[in-house]
């Protein structure tokens, strides 16, 4: 349903997307994962016809988005990163406009509004001005406008950005439900986010694809080791040397004020670490496991050592 071939986009001198290729098959939910500034939004904007690529091709529902964009856009439901809402109209009249804009038959619009309002749980807010809705509800209205014309393909750019955890869960459930009937491409910079709803992930970094695989496969690659973070009161270098001798520890590094210890994922050396510290006469102030962050994943996938200096990164 979505086919991207050698897609490249320059903003002036800046290379935003560097010759990426991937496919999304009918009925699949695919996650586009990457840190901020990786080129996710640019890729989606090209796929939806908002922008033209510098070179390469993007097909949606067999329409080339550079040459046959108008036809292609009929098949797409798009939720941009900034939810496109008019604040001075009610939810109903906004959805009515969005439906007509997508060429929905006027006599079907009323039924479709009822449908999407039910799907997105907006029944109580249908006659409320959008400007008075909270971010979470606005986001649901955003999803509603994307599905009102029953598109075959849905493109959702960071759909859970800036909403509270309960709403994130609801949104995830909604996306999963929608995934039963639609082909979905969803972007995020949070790994657990996409791993929960997607069949497959495409990881991009600095405009290039660094990994593309099914979630299960990716997890096994990534779960090679785990990290434990310790805060120890004691002489730093001596503590480092002592921790390295603890059984099952593959690596120790010091990031002020923590010692980060890495070990294979099937071991739990925490009691050994505790014993070693106490026996040496130091004080253990805190200890906890560290979830693998997106940076760590990129470190593993790209082998870049200076990744921490990258200013574009959040999370």
């Amino acid at each position: 349903m979505i086919r991207v071939e050698n897609l490249t986009k320059y903003y002036g001198e800046h290379l935003a997307v560097d010759s990426i290729s991937f496919n999304v098959k009918k009925g699949e939910i695919v996650g586009l994962l990457g840190p901020n500034g990786a080129g996710k939004t640019t890729t989606m904007r090209i796929l939806t016809g908002f922008m033209m690529p510098t070179s390469g091709d993007a097909w949606v529902a067999e329409c080339n988005m550079a040459t046959n964009s108008l036809e292609g856009r009929r098949h797409i439901g798009y939720l941009p990163e900034a939810i496109p809402l008019y604040t001075d109209v009610t939810v109903r009249s906004y959805l009515d406009f969005a439906g007509r804009l997508r060429g929905l038959d006027p006599y079907r619009i009323k039924d479709r509004i009822d449908d999407v309002v039910e799907i997105c749980h907006l029944e109580d807010y249908i006659d409320v001005l959008i400007g008075k809705l909270s971010r979470g509800f606005r986001q649901r209205v955003g999803v509603a406008q994307a599905i009102i014309h029953e598109p075959e393909v849905m493109i959702l750019d960071e759909p859970t950005l800036g909403i509270d955890p309960i709403q994130v869960t609801q949104t995830r459930r909604l996306i999963k439900e929608l995934g039963q009937e639609h082909t979905i491409l969803i972007s995020s910079h949070i790994l657990p986010e996409v791993s929960m709803v997607c069949d497959r992930v495409v990881i991009i970094h600095e405009g290039q694809i660094v990994a593309e695989d099914r979630i299960e496969n990716l997890s096994t690659i990534l779960k090679g080791s785990q990290s434990i973070r310790l805060e120890v009161r004691g002489p730093t270098s001596a503590v480092t040397r002592r921790l390295q001798r603890v059984q099952g520890i593959s690596q120790v590094r010091y990031e002020k004020p923590y010692h980060i210890v890495e070990c294979p994922v099937d071991q739990d050396p925490r009691s050994n670490l505790m014993t070693a510290i106490v026996q040496s006469g130091w004080t253990l102030l805190s200890m906890g496991t560290v979830d693998m962050s997106l940076e760590d994943i990129f470190l593993q996938l790209t082998g870049e050592e200076d990744f921490d200096d990258d200013e574009e990164l959040e999370e």
Binding site: R45, R73, R74, P84, L101
Partner: peptide, 14 residues
Amino acid sequence: KLGTWELLLTAPLR
């Protein structure tokens, strides 16, 4: 400013 420009330009309109 509202972001709705993206809605208009990705709708099937010339």
